[in-house]
Amino acid sequence: MEISTLLSRIDWNDLHGAYNICEEIADRLVAEDGALLKVFLRNLVEQEALRSQCERFNLFTKLVLLKAPNGAKVRLHLFETEVKEFHNHRAPFYSRLLSGEYVHKLYGNIESSADGEIKKMELPPVFMHKYTKNSAYILPSSFIHSTEATVFPSVSLMIQGPADREYLQIYNCDTGEVRTRYGWAVTSEIQEGGEMRVGDMIEDITEKIEVALGWRA
């Protein structure tokens, strides 16, 4: 069965079942020294529709490798700097660390707040765990979390379900600022300073990822 077909068949309301299918997808992508993952990554140069959704933020780079008809995606994340933010997501997702290391922190469920919003207040983590190569987890979109890379660069694989929220919120741990980001269904415009489309940088970013994954010297 093709990756896109498996991606479309995931029932994200059943996290246990979703995790098992995501593990199968991830295993197939990284098998044989990442042979299939390399194909998706290197094809981005020619895939304008996908490349237009690849973004570089202040803190990390997000590449969209595959998008299913229902909106589910396979992504690669490249962490090159320290992260001091926590956030929720617009969609449930699975993540597997492919190289490097980060500390994963959970802060709670955004639905437990009075109006479903992240407030300008300190949120102490309720769970912390160090993730190393091949560690994986799955979360619903409502969970507030952070991934604080401790080894640079670090690369993770994300399998994201269809969006079930219009926007996500990001909390800056240093300034207390809360930012709101909308998905592509609402806007494809740049939403904040320091954000840019990958565009012509795709080959340089691909090289960084391949070096981090040990595919080239």
Rank of each mutant, 00 (worst) to 15 (best):
T180V: 13
I170S: 14
R56G: 08
R42E: 06
V178D: 12
S99Q: 07
S8I: 00
T150Y: 13
Y94C: 08
R42H: 09
P124W: 06
Q169P: 06
M158C: 15
T61F: 02
Q53C: 06
N172I: 03
A31C: 13
R96D: 08
E32Y: 08
E148H: 15
V74I: 12
D27G: 15
P69I: 00
H16F: 10
T132N: 14
E23R: 15
M1Q: 05
D164N: 15
V30A: 08
N134I: 03
S156E: 12
Y171W: 12
D200R: 01
A18R: 01
S95C: 11
A35C: 08
R181T: 04
I170Y: 06
A114F: 13
R9N: 15
T150H: 12
L63E: 04
E192Q: 05
F93R: 00
E55S: 03
A49H: 10
S142E: 14
E203S: 10
Q160M: 15
H16T: 07
R179D: 07
D164W: 10
A185Q: 11
R42C: 04
E195C: 00
N134W: 13
D164A: 11
A185W: 09
Y102C: 05
F86N: 00
G100Y: 05
I170M: 14
H89Q: 01
V198S: 03
G108P: 02
T206G: 08
R56K: 11
F40N: 00
F86K: 03
L66H: 10
I209F: 12
S112P: 00
D27Q: 15
E166T: 15
E148K: 11
Q169C: 07
D174W: 03
L98P: 04
L50P: 14
I110Y: 05
F60Q: 06
A35S: 12
H87L: 03
L6F: 07
H145D: 10
V83E: 08
V126E: 10
N20W: 01
L29Y: 09
L44K: 04
K105R: 14
Y19D: 04
E85R: 02
A163G: 14
T81M: 01
S156C: 14
V151I: 14
A18P: 03
